[in-house]
Amino acid sequence: MEQEERHVHASSFGSAAVSYAAHRPDYARAAVEWALEPAPGPRVLDLGAGTGKLTATLVALGADVIAVEPDPAMLAELRRSLPAVHSLPGSAEAIPLPDASVDAVLAGNAMHWFDMALAGPEIARVLAPDGILAGLWNVLDDRVEWVAGLARVSGSAAVGPRDPPAGWRVETAHAHLPKTDVPARFGSPEQAEFPHGQRRTADSLAATLATRAGLLVMPEHDKQATLGRIRAFLASRAETAHGEFTLPMLTGVLRVRRL
Rank of each mutant, 00 (worst) to 15 (best):
L247E: 02
L78A: 09
A10H: 07
R229F: 06
A16C: 10
F233T: 08
R229C: 05
E69Q: 13
P89R: 14
S204Y: 11
A158F: 04
E37P: 02
A124Q: 03
D163H: 05
R169D: 09
T172A: 15
D71M: 01
P42K: 02
G41L: 00
P161G: 14
V217M: 10
L254M: 14
R169H: 13
A158E: 08
L118T: 12
E145Y: 04
V147L: 03
E2M: 13
A184I: 07
P161H: 07
R257L: 09
A104C: 12
V126L: 09
L88M: 15
P98W: 14
M1P: 13
P42N: 10
R143Q: 11
L247M: 07
A63W: 05
E122R: 07
G14P: 01
L61I: 13
V170I: 13
G62T: 12
S12P: 12
A238Y: 04
W34K: 04
R185Q: 15
P96G: 05
R231C: 07
A110K: 06
G197E: 09
A134K: 01
V144Y: 03
T226Y: 05
G14H: 03
L133T: 03
D99Y: 07
N109T: 12
L45D: 10
P40N: 09
S204D: 12
W113A: 06
V102W: 05
T180S: 13
P165C: 12
R237S: 10
F13R: 02
A128N: 13
Y20N: 00
V139M: 11
G252P: 00
E5V: 13
S101L: 08
I66W: 03
K53A: 12
T226Q: 04
R169V: 13
P25F: 12
A238I: 10
H176I: 14
L234W: 02
W113N: 02
D142N: 08
R255F: 10
D142G: 06
A238V: 13
L78C: 01
P98Q: 14
H23W: 13
N138P: 08
P70T: 07
M218I: 09
